[in-house]
């Protein structure tokens, strides 16, 4: 081992401290970059309209006027209801169709499996606008225009392929013996899926379900095009359409209050769920 002079030791220590400091500066920068816009939205949502003319970095006093104003609008409240209803139904349909299709695609060897998986992957790459006019016609024909059901129907275009794809991957990893045991016991495929596989697939279903929920909650193009009246809107459209006296005087305090209301539940969900995703990833990494 090489012996260092006191001076060399000092240089080494200074070098170590500066790298540490630079590293933590980077960490702080990353956190600020990620969190600041949302934080600033909260600050703005607590300001009165005259306070908006001054930039302030802190919440100076708790002022719920903007929140009361937003929640006092019946159309905004109904748009929250619509978004919850639509996203929940989309998740339920995607999981149900996705789980059964994933069983077939992941566990059974049959001709046409490869092409079907390719089609499913292809659909997930569709630009939404490419189906807009055709889907508009279908929705009008099914008589679900300006109706939450029309959005539930159209949202399956992006949630279903993704759910099928992910659940198939998970389904494939389950041990073969489980299914063989079920077959020996005379279980039908339906029973096999719901009694044998489903309990094992909860984590995967929770992940895909949450992602489908967020995708449906955030969708904008279809919601904007396939609804007409304020009481049928979803939350993103309602926020995009909040307007003031003119284009130059948007009620920013109210817009930010509405933004915070619809984002907080999502952020909470993701933060709770994040531990699960991360622990899954690290467990895989440790084993790998």
């Amino acid at each position: 081992m090489q012996i260092l002079t006191p001076q060399q030791l000092r240089i080494k220590r200074i070098k170590h401290i500066t790298t540490r400091a630079a590293f933590y500066a980077l960490v702080v920068a990353i956190v600020l970059f990620s969190v600041f816009p949302f934080y600033y939205a909260i600050v703005t949502s607590m300001q009165t309209s005259s306070e908006l003319f001054e930039v302030s970095y802190w919440v100076e006093h708790l002022n719920w006027e903007n929140y009361q104003a937003v929640m006092g609008q019946s159309s905004f409240v109904s748009s929250i209801g619509n978004s919850i209803l639509i996203s929940t139904l989309v998740v339920a349909i995607s999981i149900l169709f996705g789980l059964t299709a994933a069983y077939a695609l992941g566990r059974v060897d049959f001709k046409g499996r490869g092409p079907i998986l390719t089609i499913v992957l292809g659909v997930s790459m569709f630009p939404q606008v490419a189906v807009l006019s055709g889907l508009f016609e279908v929705i009008r024909a099914l008589n679900i225009y300006n109706n939450p059901l029309g959005l539930v129907f159209s949202y399956t275009i992006f949630t279903l392929p993704f759910t099928v794809w992910v659940l198939t991957t998970f389904m494939r990893q389950l041990p073969k013996e489980l299914e063989e045991a079920a077959i020996v016991d005379g279980a039908t495929p339906w029973v096999t899926i719901f009694k044998v596989f489903m309990p094992l697939l909860w984590p995967a279903m929770a992940t895909t379900g949450l992602l489908a929920f967020i995708a449906a909650w955030n969708e904008f193009l279809f919601a904007l095009t396939f609804t007409l009246t304020d009481d049928q809107r979803t939350v993103p459209v309602a926020i995009a359409l909040i307007s003031g006296g003119s284009a130059y005087e948007l009620p920013w305090g109210i817009i930010m209050a509405a933004s915070v209301i619809v984002t907080v539940p999502l952020v909470v969900l993701v933060l709770i769920f994040q531990r699960r995703i991360v622990s899954g990833l690290t467990a895989g990494a440790v084993k790998g």
């Binding site: 990620s34 955030n218 939350v235 993103p236 926020i239 930010m256 999502l266 952020v267 993701v270």
Partner: peptide, 13 residues
């Protein structure tokens, strides 16, 4: 957090 925020909301923010 940025990932979870709806695109419309981040555009407005």
């Amino acid at each position: 957090i940025p990932w979870a925020i709806p695109t419309i909301v981040s555009a407005k923010m």
